[in-house]
């Protein structure tokens, strides 16, 4: 690594605004913009915000190769108002994760926050039959159906056709718990209908009402 790049990375490591960069590098604003964009081109910087929000620059001295396409966390963060902190970088090579696949992967994960954030994706499903096939492959049909019905109750979601709903409902040989040991106090009717334990109460879904 060239000496001046390494030096710049060490000075800017972490989250920055452009004003902070001006201060840390002791340069004028136009120069700061140029220098941060040089680092961004090399893959050391991730940006967020912009528009009404202040733009933030996350500078990392370790540069993960952006191979392939966005993984599960990126797809959910792009499509859900509930944002997730990525425990690791997930990239998929050779294909893109569809909305339907992201929902099923989230249900399968048994991760509270991941499933919660994925509920918003039901409004973006393009092919219900694809969702069914994926849920069938991962043996989470009734769970997917129950979460869909829960989503319809608390926010806008595209309407699932009757055939897919029936197929999801009639699935057999599935565990009841979406997340082991967790069940709902507020959605017992959905739990009874789908014979699954929903891990959410109204309070957990508050973020979607805001």
């Amino acid at each position: 690594m060239k000496e001046h790049i390494e030096d710049r990375l060490n000075k800017l490591e972490g989250l920055n605004t452009i004003e902070l960069i001006v201060k840390k590098l002791n340069v004028k604003k136009s120069t700061a913009i140029k220098k941060i964009h040089e680092l961004k081109k090399m893959g050391y910087v991730e940006t967020s915000g912009g528009g009404k929000q202040p733009r933030l620059y996350r500078v990392s001295i370790t540069r993960m190769q952006k191979i392939g396409n966005p993984g599960l966390y990126d797809v959910i963060n792009k499509n859900s108002p509930i944002k997730l902190v990525k425990p690791y970088e997930h990239r998929v090579i050779g294909k893109n994760i569809s909305i339907e696949e992201a929902i099923v992967l989230a249900v399968k994960s048994e991760n509270f926050r991941l499933i919660l954030a994925s509920l918003a994706l039901f409004n973006k499903v393009k092919t219900w039959s694809k969702l069914y096939e994926l849920a069938k492959k991962e043996n989470v049909r009734r769970k997917t159906g129950a979460l869909y019905e829960l989503t319809r109750e608390i926010m806008r979601a595209r309407r699932m056709n009757d055939k897919t709903q029936k197929l999801l409902l009639n699935a057999k040989h599935e565990k009841k718990d979406i997340i082991a040991g967790m069940h709902s106090e507020d959605f017992k009717d959905i739990e009874k209908k789908w014979n699954v334990h929903i891990p959410f109460n109204y309070n957990d879904l508050r973020r979607y009402k805001e």
Partner: peptide, 18 residues
């Protein structure tokens, strides 16, 4: 501690932390 996961179809690669 793995830092990243790369999925190549049925083959998943997990990268150890530095």
């Amino acid at each position: 501690r793995i830092n990243s996961i790369y999925e190549y179809g049925n083959f998943t690669i997990k990268v150890l932390a530095p």
